[in-house]
């Protein structure tokens, strides 16, 4: 049981990832798909940050009187880069959705894929 509880954070991250994946797979609204994608991204960032933390640790700032152990600075740096990438992809996706809306008149995927409308 303690084994399972020790990994509680990771389990939560997996659940979040699964929710995002479910949204991406089932929602027909393109905006909702992008939201689902962002939920998945948040889950992965959560995994990275969680893996870098230490119980009772301090942020990796030297010269501020903080005591070791320090959290891993790599995890923070990776997440920061990951967030920028996720933001960029989301921005492009939103602009594309606006173009689909203007040119096809809908952002519901099931309506867009129907041939006769």
């Amino acid at each position: 049981m303690t084994e399972g509880l020790a990994h509680l954070d990771y389990i939560a991250v997996v659940i979040l990832f699964a929710i995002g994946l479910y949204v991406v797979l089932t929602k027909q609204n393109l905006i909702k798909k992008i939201i689902g994608l962002n939920i998945m991204e948040t889950a992965v960032f959560g995994l990275i940050v969680t893996s870098g933390m230490v119980d009772g640790g301090s942020p990796p700032l030297l010269g501020q009187g903080l005591e070791p152990p320090y959290a891993s600075p790599i995890a923070h740096a990776l997440v920061l880069t990951g967030i920028v990438v996720a933001l960029s992809v989301t921005a492009l996706a939103l602009v594309l959705i606006l173009r689909v809306k203007a040119e096809c008149g809908s952002i519901e995927l099931d309506e867009l894929l129907e041939p006769d409308e």
């Binding site: 084994e3 990994h7 990771y10 119980d55």
Partner: peptide, 17 residues
């Protein structure tokens, strides 16, 4: 999600120094 949980539960537990 089940497969992923099986995988992540083998990682070193988070927070352990």
């Amino acid at each position: 999600a089940g497969l992923m949980m099986a995988g992540v539960s083998q990682l070193p537990p988070p927070g352990s120094p």
